[in-house]
Design a protein around this nucleic acid. Structure first.
Length: 258
DNA sequence: ATGGTAGCGCTGCTA
């Protein structure tokens, strides 16, 4: 089974590229972030025509997360439930059972500046995510927590650590928050199979960053031990960042045995 | 050094 995360930066602007990509990607589950649309506007029929069921937690002009699956899609949840959301009103969390795996799709807040109230609430959001996992899931079950985390876990995950000193995405507190998530019972699927630096998932549109190789690895797939045992591949699709009107993120896929 | 581009939607915000 192939499970993918992709921040598409507007599903309206990106639908032609997403449809084209789905036809050749052989993906069974696709988690999308930043749909930037309402539930009414979500193209359920277009995905159905390609063989995918879908669930969308939309907001409107910002955020929005979705799950597409061709291996079944049940038990959908949206948001933090009873837990207080430090970004109340934003659509950043959706989960579903797909092919026997609990799939949890997240769009972690950006945080904007360090320090700022937005950054503080980003840290709380990540803490809340761990609390949500504790309350609703088990590290013993097949589970993938994936999405745009807006945090680069290590210095080897950014093109130039010196460039990011004092910036969001690389602070000790953000990296500690990711470590707290892993401590619940998760490992970074990409890092289980790859030690390389220079493996990125996001390149800013500005300054020709993609062509200059100025990227960061912030789109992650965290898996529980039972999924780790089934893991056979993990890879970025850099080609999806090329060409006409690309998203600023590349999709990342993992393969697990059935 | 505070740039630069993209998306939404119509003014400036968000990333």
């Amino acid at each position: 089974m192939r499970i993918v995360t992709w921040n598409v930066n507007s599903l309206k602007a990106r639908l032609p590229r997403v449809e084209e990509w789905l036809k050749t990607s052989d993906a069974d589950v696709i988690c999308i972030q930043e749909t930037k649309m309402t539930n009414e506007a979500f193209p359920t029929m277009a995905f159905e025509a390609l063989g995918y069921e879908s669930a969308h937690h939309g907001q409107g002009r910002w955020n929005g997360v979705a799950i597409l699956a061709r291996v079944g899609l049940t038990d959908v949840t949206m948001g933090f439930g009873d837990l207080e959301d430090p970004y109340e009103g934003d659509a950043r969390l959706i989960s579903a059972m797909c092919g026997g795996v609990r799939v949890v799709c997240v769009y972690v807040p950006n945080g904007r500046e360090v320090p700022s109230e937005f950054y503080d609430r980003k840290l709380i959001w990540l803490k809340r995510l761990r609390e949500w996992l504790e309350a609703n899931c088990s590290p013993e079950e097949p589970l993938v927590l994936l999405g745009d985390f807006n945090v680069a876990p290590e210095d080897r995950d950014v093109w130039d650590p010196a460039h990011f000193v004092g910036a969001t995405h690389v602070t000790e507190a953000e990296r500690d928050a990711l470590a707290e998530l892993r401590a619940w019972g998760l490992v970074d699927a990409f890092r289980e199979l790859n030690d390389d630096s220079g493996q990125y998932t996001f390149w800013d549109y500005r300054g020709g960053d993609f062509h200059q190789g100025r990227g960061v690895r912030i789109d992650l797939l965290y898996v529980t031990p039972v999924v780790r045992e089934r893991l056979t591949a993990a890879k970025m699709d850099r080609d999806a960042r090329k060409g006409e009107k690309p998203s600023d993120h590349a999709p990342v896929a993992i393969d697990i045995t059935n």
